[in-house]
Amino acid sequence: MDMSHRPRRLRSDGVRSLVRETELSASDLVAPVFVDATTDERVPIGSMPGHTRVPVDQAAERVREVRETGVEAVIVFGVPESKDAEGSRAWADDGVVQRAVRRIVEETDAYVITDVCLCEYTDHGHCGAIESGARADPHMTVDNDRTLELLAKTAVSHAEAGADMVAPSSMTDGMVGAIRTALDDHGFESLPIMSYAAKYESAFYGPFRDAADGAPAFGDRRHYQMDPANGREATREVALDVEEGADVLLIKPALAYLDVVADVRETFDHPVAAYNVSGEYAMLHAAAEKGWLDLDAVAHESLLSIKRAGADLILTYFAEDVARRL
């Protein structure tokens, strides 16, 4: 047996770190922050241990806590005080995200990304204005082109509040182009868009829907979010967003879709983001509570695997805990 090739030579202490292919740092991570206009105190999110909804007047304090760990960026989600069929509180000047972003920008040095979607703001929980009769007919779905108008208004309102980046997440056809045009028309030509370019209709979103109060009141989202069975379709979806002007390409979820992350990294030159979603976070916590896994170790390994697959930045609920240990 020829033993001239011994990979173990490079696994000893000292050299191991020198030949390490992938490094994870706090600056790779984006921490989600939930701001709730219906409360005046922090509300724990039961299915996401360690996370809370915070009132608007504590939004900046919450972001300062994130910054203290070395994480530089946050993405802000809002829970409004009221909801309606079109989600009009999403673009209101005094909306929950708009008020929170103003405070965060004024009081911290964090890089502020905002989620641009309507599911938290509509009384039906879908990601846009619904077609006539949709409540009674499960085959009806979101009115794509009407929704584009609402998403564009929402993105502009976030930019006016001081957001550094907007992140449309509704998987509405044409959303990047509509938002890019609206931002440019309002003088925000330099504001980047991180598109949820390949977002799947995943079973891993359950805890987030508790956190953001955004579960559908009827039906599901299979008519606009991607089929988990499809990989090649992601390339097409991402290419369309690139053509429309997306600056960063996000894949969601992350761990169950590392093949998609790797394919997008290989195919496109744009920065690639991946969302390590609530269900991926919750299942590791649940296993750790049972004593089956070391939470710190599997959290770090999970994020490292996402980075190794090709993600340049990672949205994750583990951001603060992992950053503290890096």
Rank of each mutant, 00 (worst) to 15 (best):
D2K: 06
D2W: 04
S4P: 00
P7S: 03
R8M: 02
R8G: 00
R8T: 05
R20P: 00
E21H: 04
L24P: 02
L24V: 10
S25P: 00
S27Q: 15
L29C: 12
F34Y: 14
F34N: 08
F34L: 14
D36N: 14
P49Y: 15
H51R: 13
T52P: 01
V54N: 06
P55R: 08
V56R: 06
A59I: 02
A60L: 09
R62N: 07
V63H: 09
V66Q: 11
G70P: 08
G70I: 08
V71F: 02
A73I: 00
I75Q: 05
I75L: 12
V76I: 15
V76N: 02
E81W: 13
S82I: 01
D84C: 07
A85H: 06
A92P: 01
V101A: 10
I104E: 10
E106F: 01
E107P: 00
D109R: 03
D115P: 05
D115F: 13
D115N: 09
L118S: 11
C119R: 12
C119Q: 10
E120M: 10
E120G: 07
Y121I: 09
Y121G: 13
G125M: 06
C127Y: 05
G128P: 00
A129Y: 04
A134K: 05
R135N: 03
M140C: 10
M140D: 07
T147V: 08
L148C: 03
A152N: 13
T154H: 11
A155R: 03
S157Q: 15
H158I: 01
A163R: 06
V166P: 01
S169M: 02
V176D: 07
G177W: 05
G177D: 12
R180M: 10
D184T: 14
G187F: 09
G187S: 07
G187D: 10
G187W: 08
E189G: 03
S190Q: 15
I193W: 09
A198D: 13
Y200K: 13
S202I: 03
Y205Q: 06
G214T: 09
P216A: 12
A217M: 13
D220H: 10
R222E: 13
R222I: 04
Q225C: 06
M226Y: 12
M226S: 08
A229R: 15
A229W: 11
N230K: 06
G231M: 13
V242N: 04
V242H: 07
L249T: 02
D259M: 03
V260A: 11
V261R: 06
V264F: 04
V277E: 14
A282S: 15
L284A: 10
H285C: 05
A286V: 02
L295M: 12
L295P: 02
D296P: 02
H300Y: 15
H300I: 13
E301G: 09
S302R: 10
L304K: 11
K307T: 03
A311F: 03
D312R: 04
T316C: 04
T316D: 05
V322R: 07
R324M: 11
L326V: 15
